[in-house]
Structures are given as structure tokens and as C-alpha cells.
């Protein structure tokens, strides 16, 4: 498991000065305050709630702010079976979340439809939205959710937000098109 780039360079400058890259510091800030939007659909929601309570404290990862508003959250945790009836609502919620956003598919049902191979269950939330981390289990233990969260944090550390900023095409190209 790659731990991402170094957050700071070993420097000989004394005092409280840390040298780092803009990317690394932005990633560090983002990964340590992921605000989840819990899409708690079924049984996995109970383990999600347990992960946010006193025994498996998700607050130590900065993620206890479970805002039920998609506009204020970064991380969509799809916990539970996604049915076809619910699928478009989930997609709409994902679309409402502002960038940067990530998605965790928690549990077997969200990753792949789980043991429900039937006419009413969407076989995996990745059919309609991009998933960053899949957590297996039915339901995954809260420790597994925390492990998934940590892997997502490692993944975030490897992003290059500043260097790969999305750029609009140059003005003359837009006009020509």
C-alpha cells in the first residue's frame, strides 16, 4: 500500500517551518476532514452508525460530520442494497455533491448487488456512479469501514489537484468549435 508522497521535506531550516508541496498539503487537508453523506439504505447503515458511535469512533478520522445534505459533503458512502427504484435518486444525490467528491461502496450489495440477484436490485452502484473504494462484507464490520476510509485517504494523498487542474479549452478553440 503506497502511502502517498511525503507531506514535508526534511529541511534544515529551524523554527516552525515545514516545506511541502501545495498538492500534498491540499490532499492532507482533504483526507483528514472528509464529510460523509451517508446513503444508508439497508443493514449496512446500522454498521455505519455503529462506526460513528463511541466504540469505533469515526471522528478520529475527521469524518463524524454526517451531513445529510449532499451539498455540504465530500464523501458518499453507499451503505446497503441499491434497488432500481432508488438508483436514480442516488445518482441525483451524487450529482448534487460538489467536487471534489469520492464514493465508497460499503458492503456486498452496494459493490455488486450482493446476494440479491433479482429483478429489483441494481447489481452494484458502480453501474451508475464512479466508486473509489469497495468494502466487502455483509455487513462489513465497522473496522472494515474504517480500513476502507483509510485506503481512501491514501488514495487521496496521491492526487495531484493543482498540477492537473481541469482547464477549460482555450478561448480560440472554443470559438472555433
Amino acid at each position: 500500500m503506497v502511502h502517498g508522497r511525503d507531506l514535508s521535506y526534511n529541511s534544515k531550516v529551524e523554527g516552525n517551518i515545514v516545506l511541502t508541496t501545495l498538492d500534498a498539503s491540499i490532499n492532507w487537508m482533504r483526507k483528514n476532514s472528509l464529510w460523509p453523506m451517508p446513503m444508508g439504505l439497508a443493514c449496512c447503515a446500522i454498521e455505519l452508525m455503529a462506526a460513528s458511535c463511541a466504540r469505533f469512533d469515526i471522528a478520529r478520522f475527521g469524518a463524524e460530520v454526517m451531513r445529510f445534505s449532499p451539498r455540504q459533503s465530500d464523501l458518499l458512502i453507499v451503505a446497503g442494497t441499491v434497488t432500481y427504484k432508488m438508483a436514480l435518486s442516488s445518482k441525483r444525490i451524487w450529482d448534487q455533491m460538489p467536487e471534489p467528491k469520492w464514493c465508497i461502496a460499503m458492503g456486498a450489495c452496494a459493490s455488486s448487488g450482493g446476494m440479491y440477484r433479482s429483478y429489483a436490485v441494481l447489481q452494484g452502484i458502480d453501474r451508475i456512479l464512479p466508486v473509489d473504494v469497495y468494502i466487502s462484507g455483509c455487513p462489513p464490520r465497522p473496522e472494515a469501514l474504517l480500513e476502507g476510509l483509510m485506503r481512501l485517504q491514501n488514495k487521496i494523498m496521491q492526487e495531484r489537484s493543482v498540477t492537473e487542474q481541469k482547464q477549460l479549452p482555450a478561448l480560440n478553440e472554443r470559438v472555433a468549435a
Binding site: 427504484k85 438508483a87 436514480l88 440477484r117 429483478y119 441494481l122 447489481q123
Partner: peptide, 20 residues
């Protein structure tokens, strides 16, 4: 009606596919 379902489309509302 088969267990895996029959594809259907209701635009804006829902859709269904065949489960493998």
C-alpha cells in the same frame, strides 16, 4: 416472470436490467 428480471425503462423514474 424470470427471477433475473426483464429490462425496462421509465425515463426519469427508474430502469431495470437483467441480473446476471
Amino acid at each position: 416472470f424470470p427471477l433475473e428480471g426483464i429490462p425496462s425503462e421509465m425515463p426519469g423514474e427508474a430502469f431495470s436490467l437483467i441480473a446476471p
